[in-house]
């Protein structure tokens, strides 16, 4: 029974982090930009969404969608620092992440003045309901709430996936892909590749912020420390997804990334079962990530080796 509950919880978490992973897929895989500002934009999305819901009384769904723009702005700062001021990719991410720690804290203070508890507060008050406790779940009764959460999350994730897929098929999307792939080509086409880099990083962080907003809805509370470790989590999801699933025919990279996020979250949740005190959780997390990276290296090495052999035969 505990195992079952853990699985459900893992799936809920995984689908929530799938949005995060899709964002990081844009920055890491498509733009080749290991973006560390993710650790800051994730809680930023959460706090902005919470403010919109609690202070302005905006319903959950539009609040989550609006939090996208907070991430968009923060991501644009990372992009501008890198492109316009030639700060390295890692450092511009770190700068924005550090700055956002204060920004989210200040935004949280905005909430405490309304008389709620300092960092943790509930959405489950009389007239404030999160995206996941709407009338639909009331209809099915409390026992089915878990499944309802999964279904709504799934719809949300698929919508995000389709939007990203569509975007990457547009001319603008092509340019963003080309920027990550071969910047020189973009310049040859008479365009400034820097613009597309900033745009891509901004979009990526927009989705990350949306995931943060979703996360605070899922657990009915905003947590200031929810950002820590999100870069690792997202990268692990993207790498597992691409390494394991993108080799399956007819499976797009975005679908692969979603599955990667779900599987990684499940693994993390099962780790909690093993280590009930939670002391070695981060260590196990790191080991799991290392294993994934090693596995990824091995598989790609294996495949290129095989391709080389094939090419050799063709020449003979």
């Amino acid at each position: 029974m505990l195992f079952f509950a853990t699985t459900i919880d893992g799936l809920q978490m995984g689908l929530c982090f799938a949005v995060l992973a899709l964002g990081v897929y844009i920055s890491y895989s498509i733009l080749d930009f290991p973006d560390l500002s993710v650790d800051g934009t994730f809680p930023l999305g959460g706090v902005v969404c919470t403010i919109l819901m609690l202070k302005l009384g905006i319903p959950a769904l539009p609040a989550i969608l609006l939090s996208f723009f907070a991430g968009l702005a923060a991501g644009a700062v990372t992009g501008v620092l890198h492109v316009k001021f030639s700060i390295s990719k890692l450092l511009s991410g770190i700068i924005v992440m550090t700055a956002l720690l204060s920004v989210t804290l200040a935004l949280t203070k905005l909430l405490t003045r309304t008389g709620l508890t300092t960092t943790i507060f509930s959405f489950r008050s009389e007239n404030l309901e999160g995206l996941f406790s709407g009338s639909a779940s009331r209809l099915l009764g409390d026992a089915n709430r878990d499944y309802m959460i999964l279904i709504i999350e799934l719809i949300f994730v698929i919508a995000v996936k389709l939007i990203i897929d569509l975007f990457l098929k547009t001319k603008l999307g092509y340019m963003v892909r080309a920027t990550g792939n071969n910047e020189m080509l973009v310049v040859s086409l008479g365009r400034d590749s820097g613009t597309y880099k900033i745009l891509g990083i901004a979009l990526a962080n927009g989705f990350v912020a949306m995931s943060g907003a979703l996360y605070s809805n899922l657990y009915s509370q905003y947590d200031n420390s929810s950002g820590s470790g999100k870069v690792v989590m997202a990268l692990a999801s993207v790498i597992i997804g691409i390494a394991v699933f993108s080799k399956i025919k007819f499976m797009g990279n975005t679908t692969a990334v979603i599955l990667g996020a779900v599987i990684y979250s499940l693994c993390l949740n099962y780790l909690v079962l093993v280590d009930t005190n939670g002391i070695y959780l981060k260590l196990l997390n790191a080991v799991l990530f290392a294993i994934i990276l090693i596995f990824n290296e091995k598989t790609s090495g294996f495949i290129t080796g095989r391709q080389k052999a094939k090419r050799g035969q063709a020449k003979c």
């Binding site: 975007f167 098929k169 547009t170 001319k171 603008l172 999307g173 092509y174 340019m175």
Partner: peptide
């Protein structure tokens, strides 16, 4: 223009 119309 490289806009939001379909790439192909």
């Amino acid at each position: 223009r490289y806009g939001l119309s379909f790439g192909v």
